[in-house]
Nucleic acid binder design. Sequence first.
DNA 1: GATGACACCTCGGAACACGAGGTATGTAAC
DNA 2: GTTACATACCTCGTGTTCCGAGGTGTCATC
Lengths: 112, 112
Amino acid sequence: MELTQEMIKGTVVPVILKLLAERAMYGYELIRVVNERTHNALQWKEGTLYPWLHRLEADGLIRGEWDEAASGRQRKYYRITRKGAAALEKTVHEWVTLSSAVNAILLAPSMA
Amino acid sequence: MELTQEMIKGTVVPVILKLLAERAMYGYELIRVVNERTHNALQWKEGTLYPWLHRLEADGLIRGEWDEAASGRQRKYYRITRKGAAALEKTVHEWVTLSSAVNAILLAPSMA
DNA sequence: GATGACACCTCGGAACACGAGGTATGTAAC
DNA sequence: GTTACATACCTCGTGTTCCGAGGTGTCATC
């Protein structure tokens, strides 16, 4: 019964879309940025992220493109599509609705 | 790719514990109360709730007891245990940490 | 006596996370 | 030059979960 991990589900998609809306990034970078920005509250793993990137690309929400870094290393940079931007807006709204509802219950004062 | 349903996962346990910390309730009642309090933002289903009640009882976080309602109908009232109260505190803290981290990303101003 | 709300439950298919494993390249140390 | 590590991509299998569909029985109403 690993609660935290369960909570993380469902936040993956909006967070990916949001970060890619800010700027194009490659998979490994996304993991690093998320772990840093959330101080490891969200601990993303490769086994979770890569399949999602493929799914989102298949759905046309993001588009990946191989590019050569200055070091000469190949990286696959993803950027958000128009369709993805629309999905982002929708999913953020869903998150706000849900988290507000949950907060309203969890943070209500306990009855004595 | 049903995002909202995915998000709901992980919120089930803290919400159950919190509501039972307020007062003893039976399963069917929990579903009704949650759907009302969240205006259907969380739409709980029986197929999700009942297995969780059994799991939480098996883990000693809640305790169920059959009781006869005034109508004569049998209901299984659940109440939180001492162990459950500790788990509630922990899981609420986890939720706050997680939702704050996600909000920090999702609600950040988009770069132009 | 039939219909529908209440109240409990289980089962099975589909979806998902993630650990473990794999490949390949650049960099640093020795 | 080769060993070792960080980078960077990927897939597969196991275990876990949701929830629609189905089942049982009770009570109230008509």
